[in-house]
Nucleic acid binder design. Structure first.
Length: 308
DNA sequence: TAGATTTGACCCCG
DNA sequence: CGGGGTCAAATCTA
């Protein structure tokens, strides 16, 4: 971020100049904003895990697919916001994965060409992900597997300074639809009773997921650590206010759109499920306020009880 | 038997 | 050169 002598664009309430000479401007540190967005992603994931199975069991009229797409759009939007913040933070936009891969391919091709054909050892490992530039979003959750997408595990490794292995997943539609989304799941060294995992998502889904084919038996919620102490039913209002206070007008606009989608989805759910107001609010409050360590069957039971 | 998972090896980045 | 990400053969499972 280049802030030489200018007022801080990313702090609406600040007119003071930022740090100069490339030093990191602590006023422009977007980490609180990013943390909030990551938390928002967790909430959306959690909401999706509740809503989609309920929709799919209730009706087969395509609404589940629409709602799934809306959820996907919201999450994509969040990723873009984080990406934008990160790129502003370092002062330049990171090249996308394809660009990196292509450059690396070209580099390898060139070096191979110089070696001569007889020395070229043709290896299939040409799709290497950059560790440095790849945009990623992370979540801490007790149930890392259900997030509305279908994943296939392709690796597992021991990681330094960690007691637990890291698992590597790619989108199940990687080959069919050239979807480049991947994620890693690693258990945290937690002292509590609930086993928590760090889930890091890389890339965005370009696949058209057929949600009706999603495995309903693995419906789970994501459980961000921060939620257990701070989340409540009027969180969206607080969230909106925080966003307004923390971010640029353009980010506020993006986030405002997201909130609009939230309400649209909740409204759509309401009508699609045929829930009474009381039931819907009860349901949302349940998942927003406390039921964060529920197993999938418990969530399912709660959702179903809302129908009766 | 097809699809998913495991696991050792390979490769690149830092 | 070590750590981490990915590949693909072997193995497992429904």
């Amino acid at each position: 971020m280049k802030n030489k002598g200018s007022s801080c664009r990313y702090l609406p309430h600040s007119s003071a100049p930022c740090a100069t000479d490339g030093a990191r401007c602590f006023r422009c540190d977007h980490r609180p904003a990013i943390d909030e967005i990551v938390r928002e992603q967790s909430l959306v994931t959690q909401l999706r895990a509740v809503v989609l199975p309920a929709l799919e069991t209730k009706a087969d009229d395509g609404r589940a697919e629409i709602v799934a797409q809306l959820f996907g759009s919201i999450l994509d939007c969040s990723r873009k916001v984080i990406s934008a913040l990160n790129s502003r933070y370092v002062g330049e936009s990171p090249p996308d994965d394809d660009e990196i891969v292509d450059k690396r391919r070209a580099k390898r091709k060139n070096s191979e060409g110089k070696k001569g054909d007889d020395q070229v050892k043709v290896k299939p490992h040409e799709h290497k992900r950059s560790r440095r530039y790849t945009n990623s979003t992370s979540q801490i959750t007790a149930v890392p597997h259900y997030d509305g997408h279908q994943w296939r595990k392709y690796g597992q490794k021991n990681i330094n300074n960690s007691n637990h292995q890291r698992s590597y997943y790619r989108c199940s539609y990687k080959h069919e639809q050239n979807c480049k989304a991947t994620k890693t799941v690693q258990q945290l060294d937690s002292a509590g009773e609930t086993i928590m995992y760090t889930v890091v998502y890389y890339g965005q889904h370009t696949c058209k997921t057929n949600m009706s084919n999603a495995p309903l038996h693995v419906v789970e919620t994501s459980t961000p650590q921060s939620i257990s102490t701070t989340c409540c039913s009027d969180d969206l209002g607080d969230y909106s206010q925080k966003m307004e206070n923390m971010h640029t007008p353009e980010l506020a606009e993006v986030c405002s759109d997201e909130l609009g989608s939230y309400h649209a989805i909740i409204g759509a759910e309401h009508s699609a499920l045929g829930l009474e107001d009381e039931h819907m609010h009860k349901l949302l409050d349940t998942f927003a306020c406390g039921a964060l360590d529920l197993d999938s069957w418990e969530i399912d039971a709660i959702v179903r009880s809302g129908f009766c």
